[in-house]
Each structure stands twice: as structure tokens, then as C-alpha cells.
């Protein structure tokens, strides 16, 4: 038992590592605050294209979404970070993460929001247009607010996934929480910093996970 505590819950080591772990946590939060809006912007664009009146636009958008749902995000990130410089395009770790998340999470948010837009009855658009609202105004004030509300559980769940996914930025040496924890583990030969990082992730995301499973259960019960 003592060995276990020494290896995994070594408070001395955790307190030694705490300054860089805090810095890592801060970077993770910063990363989340950057990539969630980026993904949402990409998602709104894709959702609008996926519900466009032109058939070929819808097909292109669906193809784009499927393409980036089929490529593992880490592969995309490694390609942007390590592959692009061969084409003379060095976007750096932050650039690679920003582009990669825009493409990957954009596709996922896009799919969620498309389902949301599809769930708004046609009569809503007709009523809005009959009062003289333009197509853009109808989308902004009538369709999108309802679409977002209808798929709120999926949006929250996707956001949790995005925040978790920021951990892959450690692979391209972006100093977020997992990266810093591994640095500390390398120096101390002790797994406790990684355990501390895991606890931090858990505390950060647990409330959202609880909320999610409540919403999901409610949504499913409504369908049964």
C-alpha cells in the first residue's frame, strides 16, 4: 500500500510539480477557450451548407464532414505540425492545433447543428418569411435559436469531447496539462504528476458529464 502511495499519490512530488502543473492547466483552459469557438464557427458554417437549398452544396458539405470524421484528430494534428513544414508552411504548434480543431471539431459540431436545424419545423421558416424577414434573419432569429435548444445535450457532450481532445496537443509539444505532467514524470520518475493531471481533468469535466447523462436519459426517455 505504501509503495502504491509512493508511486501514484506522492504528495511531495505533486507539490514540487505543482507550479508547472498549474501552468499546464492554465494552458489547457486557454486552449479550450480557443478551440471550442473555432469548432463552433466551423460547425455553423457546415450546418448551413448542409441545409442549403442546392443539392450539390449539401453533398459537398456532407462529404467534407465525413472526411474529417474519418481521419483521427491526432493524425490530422501530426500532419499539420510535422507534414506541412515540408511544403514550406510552418504553422507552429498553436497554429496546427487551431487549424486541426477547426477542421475536426467543426465537422462534429456541424453534424450536431445540422440535426438541430432539421428538427425545426418548416412552418417556422414560412411564418418568419411571411412577415418579411429575410432568409438570413430567419436563420439567425428563428431557426438557429430553436435548433441549438433542440440539440443542447449533444452540443454539451461534444464540447466535453473537445476539451478532452485538447490533451493531444501534448503530442506536438504544446505545454498544456498532459504535456507538463509528462515532463514532471520524466524528471521525477514518478507517476504521481500524471495522476494529479488526471484528477484535474476529472474535476474539470465531471460536472458536465453528470449534466450530460441527465440530459441524455431525459431525451431517451422522451423517445421510448
Amino acid at each position: 500500500m505504501d509503495d502504491f502511495v509512493q508511486a501514484f499519490l506522492n504528495l511531495d512530488i505533486i507539490s514540487q510539480a505543482s507550479p508547472i502543473l498549474w501552468r499546464g492547466l492554465w494552458q489547457t483552459l486557454l486552449l479550450a477557450v480557443m478551440v471550442v469557438p473555432l469548432g463552433l464557427i466551423g460547425g455553423v458554417i457546415l450546418a448551413l451548407l448542409s441545409t442549403a437549398p442546392l443539392r450539390w452544396v449539401r453533398i459537398l458539405a456532407a462529404g467534407w464532414v465525413d472526411l474529417f470524421r474519418a481521419i483521427p484528430p491526432l493524425v490530422l494534428l501530426v500532419f499539420l505540425y510535422a507534414g506541412l513544414p515540408f511544403a514550406g508552411l510552418d504553422v507552429g504548434a498553436w497554429g496546427a492545433v487551431a487549424i486541426g480543431f477547426f477542421l475536426n471539431t467543426g465537422a462534429y459540431y456541424g453534424e450536431v447543428l445540422r440535426a438541430g436545424i432539421d428538427s425545426v419545423p418548416r412552418g417556422q421558416t414560412e411564418a418568419a418569411r411571411s412577415t418579411g424577414l429575410s432568409q438570413a434573419q430567419t436563420l439567425a432569429f428563428v431557426v438557429l435559436p430553436q435548433a441549438v435548444r433542440n440539440v443542447m445535450p449533444d452540443l454539451i457532450s461534444n464540447t466535453v469531447e473537445v476539451v478532452k481532445l485538447t490533451s493531444i496537443a501534448s503530442v506536438v509539444a504544446l505545454p498544456e496539462l498532459l504535456f507538463q505532467a509528462r515532463q514532471a514524470q520524466n524528471v521525477t520518475y514518478n507517476a504521481s504528476p500524471i495522476v494529479a493531471a488526471a484528477v484535474a481533468y476529472f474535476l474539470l469535466l465531471w460536472p458536465l458529464v453528470r449534466l450530460m447523462s441527465r440530459l441524455e436519459n431525459k431525451a431517451m426517455a422522451g423517445r421510448g
Binding site: 419545423p121 412552418g123 412577415t131 429575410s134
Partner: peptide, 20 residues
């Protein structure tokens, strides 16, 4: 058409009020 529609009010069978 948006300007023209201001002068033509429409009421639907299913009301189509904005629920939000």
C-alpha cells in the same frame, strides 16, 4: 419580396409561433 411581404399578412393552420 421581404418588403412586399410586410404588406401581406399570413396566418397559418398550425399557428407557427416561435416557441422560444
Amino acid at each position: 419580396i421581404n418588403k412586399a411581404r410586410q404588406r401581406i399578412g399570413m396566418v397559418f393552420q398550425s399557428f407557427n409561433l416561435y416557441p422560444h
